[in-house]
Write a protein that binds this DNA or RNA. Structure first.
Lengths: 179, 179
DNA sequence: GCAACCGCTTGCAAAATGCAATTGGTTTGG
DNA sequence: CCAAACCAATTGCATTTTGCAAGCGGTTGC
């Protein structure tokens, strides 16, 4: 778990922090899925295994991308929080989602969030980052966004709408398992 | 070398294409360093080894990020070209460079390009992408950029300026080896 | 003609990954 | 009050990926 430092190039250093097959997906689930606990992250779309998840969380904490704290409501639960460092990854996530949607065989339900983030542009990303700062850093709500529908709720609603539509419009949908 | 497809999420699929420790650095060297040949890419800042480079180039070609062609001037040389798919990574590279420069211990000379790209914003990225389309896809020059200094030349000049200044202003600098 | 260069390939050791089972402890529901 | 479910990991082990160093047959430039 030592620091790599192959070179002082910003792209290389970024790759060394989250340039593996899992780190970015963990951050994605925290940012877009609102996940904060180990067990929640274990239920990722891509089925990460527990040893890898534990390892990556530890690494992300060491690198300042996350912080870890005890959950006051449950002695065994740990709460992971984003830091400003990982919150500022939101524009990159948005671009990555847009790029992937353009070039790769994405599924409709899993790319609807990316589509909305692309359409929303920097203004939407700023609101989202502001909300994440509230949730994870305990910042007080930014005046310009009070009363607005939270971005994650909008994205989630759009996702559920696609799932519902694809299922035929009338069937029940297990939102918890599918999100 | 089979396709992964852990899920249809655009971020996951993107990670599966270039989310390893080397692919993005190879693309960086092609985009910002103008490298087209195997031996040039071997001389990366981070010292990639030849088997890994060969493997990644093969994979990037398979995935449509690069094309490979014979060099008409040299029977043994292969020329690798960017595709629209990899050229459209430029904004992500710019964001990644800016993010890395903000949060990680970058060196001044290796982050000056990222700084300029950030300051230049989307307008500069568009010009750069247009120039890459000329170089790699054989597109004819876009009218709005004829006569303008090419972006890569600007970035390279800024890099050399920093190296020169750091060396003391009067010493000779091996531009080839350091770039 | 010979040294330097061309894009790889090979052999092998080390490290990372992935799976399944398990740990010691906590909380929940009856 | 007890058992079942849940908590964040950890362990052992097999498989895969990575990384280093050396070497390949061939081409090019001097």
């Amino acid at each position: 778990m030592d620091v790599a430092r192959r070179s002082g190039c910003p792209i290389n250093l970024s790759v060394e922090v989250f340039g593996d097959k899992w780190s970015l997906l963990i951050l994605r689930d925290m940012i877009f899925g609102g996940k904060r606990h180990f067990r929640e992250m274990l239920r990722s779309e891509e089925a990460i295994s527990s040893n890898i998840l534990a390892d990556r969380l530890k690494m992300l904490v060491e690198q300042g991308m996350l912080t870890k704290a005890d959950d006051p409501t449950h002695k065994q639960k740990a709460i992971y929080s984003l830091t400003e460092m990982s919150i500022s990854l939101v524009p990159i996530m948005a671009h990555l989602g847009a790029w992937g949607s353009r070039w790769l065989p994405v599924s409709e339900e899993l790319s609807i969030r990316a589509k909305l983030m692309e359409e929303g542009g920097p203004a939407m990303w700023e609101q989202f980052m502001s909300e994440l700062r509230q949730e994870h850093l305990g910042q007080s709500p930014a005046a310009e966004y009070v009363g607005a529908t939270p971005i994650r709720a909008k994205l989630q609603a759009a996702y559920e709408e696609v799932v519902r539509r694809k299922a035929g419009g009338s069937q029940a949908v297990d939102v918890d398992a599918a999100s």
